[in-house]
Amino acid sequence: MLRLLQIEFIKLWNNKASRFLIVSYFVLLTFIALIAAIKFDIGPVKFHLAEQGIFNFPYIWHFNSFIAAWFKLFLAIVIVSMVANEYSNKTLKQNLIDGLSKKEFVLSKFITVVVFAGISVLFLFIVSLILGLVYSDYNEIGIIFSDLEYLFAFFIKLVGFFSFCLFLGMLVRRSAFALGFLIIWQVIEGIATGLLYWKTSNSFAETVTSFFPLNSMANLIKEPFTRLSAVKSVANQIGEELTKDYAVHWYEILIVCAWTFLFIYLSYALLKKRDL
């Protein structure tokens, strides 16, 4: 395990472009803290985002994991290219000749993905904890450590998304085309979702679309904005009742885990079948 991770580390860390992207990703993740600095101070209108309750425990876990998930695109580039480059440099062939098995090759990529996701969660946890301790209105231990399932969902979401990238890199074998494919896939899901809602009942469409790979990952952490008390009170004033289920459900986790397994298994099956 450690050996596979070390192999991947040597490949990634010595590549300037990947190193730059990885470092930027983690720096950006830390910069969530800067949201706290958003302040408008125009005469009588005083607005300080940090004081609107977004950093209240346990809401902060939900809010930050939703925001942090956007940055995953940085690592997506790294992951797609770390697979596709092995094909274009033909180093995959050399790795196999040197005595790495095809299973170990896929595993070394997957472990790296899991480690990336793990470190992201750790970063997010620390940054959110500090922000919360500074700005939160509630500081009881029981409240601080409630709703941590959002961090778990964040982890599953990242692993699922990165596994999808890994599979695309393996399938398409060119970084740029694989990233293009990712965007096209998003569009396809969008069109399919639109058609389903248009042609069938809402509940049926919702059930089916919750099984789409990218949509299932997006479903894990619902948008947190309408949950803010400030937004709620505005909605109430205009006569709109916001009742939404924000929780992380076990079956949503299960769907993403199933996709993750499928992507990794398909990557392995592809590699096994191919003549290099």
């Binding site: 050996r3 070390q6 192999i7 040597i10 490949k11 010595n14 590549n15 300037k16 440099n89 033909k90 180093t91 062939k93 050399q94 790795n95 196999l96 000749i97 040197d98 005595g99 790495l100």
Partner: peptide, 30 residues
Amino acid sequence: LKKVGAIIERPNFYPYMTAVQNLSLVCKIK
């Protein structure tokens, strides 16, 4: 294959890595 040494057609290494870095990687694999 860990007890075999082989070169096939063109030499394939990571272009952005130095000779020592490339060989360290091979050591890890083998």
